[in-house]
Amino acid sequence: MQPTFNPPSTQVKADPLQRFLAALIDGLVTYIPFFIFTFISYRLAMLGWVFMLGYQLTKDALPEVGGFLGGQSIGKKLMNIKVIREDTGQGILGDYGTAIVRQVSLMIPIFGIIDAIMVLGDERKRFGDKWAKTIVVKA
């Protein structure tokens, strides 16, 4: 369930350490099953690859599962941060297009490093945030 309206200007931006730790947790969530599946069989490795890619692209728009997630990746949920739209202040729950746009920059090899550096700036926005017009804030 989305809040009615929460202006982004009233939100406190997530600090770079929170964002880094959330990304690290999300990386573990995706890569550990992939490596386990790869160890078991090649066919399971393909399934793991599909899961890994699907989760990484849509993790910030996933629906609530058993009272968990609801528009936050596992890492963001554990770090108590979330993605919101710049214009409305609402989360991106169910907005898979915006979630994918946010992640495209991370699929370009050198952009991942540049994005990490951009989060340290005053704006605390990486390319994906700028392209999708989103902000990462404290939940």
Rank of each mutant, 00 (worst) to 15 (best):
Q2I: 05
F5S: 15
T10R: 09
T10C: 06
Q11N: 12
K13M: 09
A14F: 01
A14R: 02
P16Q: 14
L24K: 11
I25P: 04
D26K: 06
L28E: 06
L28H: 08
V29S: 05
T30G: 12
F34N: 13
I36G: 14
I36H: 15
I36K: 14
I36Q: 15
T38W: 15
T38Q: 15
F39Y: 15
I40N: 11
Y42E: 15
L44E: 10
L44D: 08
L44P: 09
L44Q: 11
A45H: 14
M46E: 15
L47T: 13
G48M: 13
V50R: 11
V50G: 10
F51R: 04
F51E: 07
L53A: 14
Y55P: 12
Y55I: 08
Q56N: 15
T58A: 14
D60L: 02
D60W: 00
D60R: 00
A61N: 02
A61L: 02
A61K: 00
L62N: 01
V65N: 03
G67H: 03
F68K: 04
F68L: 06
L69T: 00
G71K: 02
S73K: 02
S73M: 03
S73L: 01
I74L: 12
G75T: 01
G75M: 04
K76I: 00
K77Y: 01
K77A: 00
M79I: 03
M79K: 02
N80L: 02
K82Q: 06
I84E: 01
R85T: 10
E86M: 09
D87W: 07
D87C: 08
Q90V: 02
Q90D: 03
I92Q: 10
L93H: 04
L93F: 05
L93N: 06
L93I: 04
G94K: 12
G94R: 10
G94V: 08
D95A: 07
Y96C: 08
Y96S: 09
G97S: 13
A99S: 14
A99L: 07
R102N: 05
Q103E: 14
S105L: 12
S105G: 11
M107P: 09
I108R: 09
P109Y: 05
P109R: 05
I110K: 03
F111M: 12
G112K: 11
I113L: 08
I114L: 13
D115H: 08
A116L: 15
I117N: 08
M118F: 12
V119W: 12
V119S: 13
L120R: 12
L120K: 13
K125Q: 11
K125Y: 05
G128R: 07
K130I: 11
W131Y: 13
T134F: 05
T134E: 02
T134W: 03
I135M: 09
V137E: 00
V137H: 01
K138Q: 06
K138F: 02
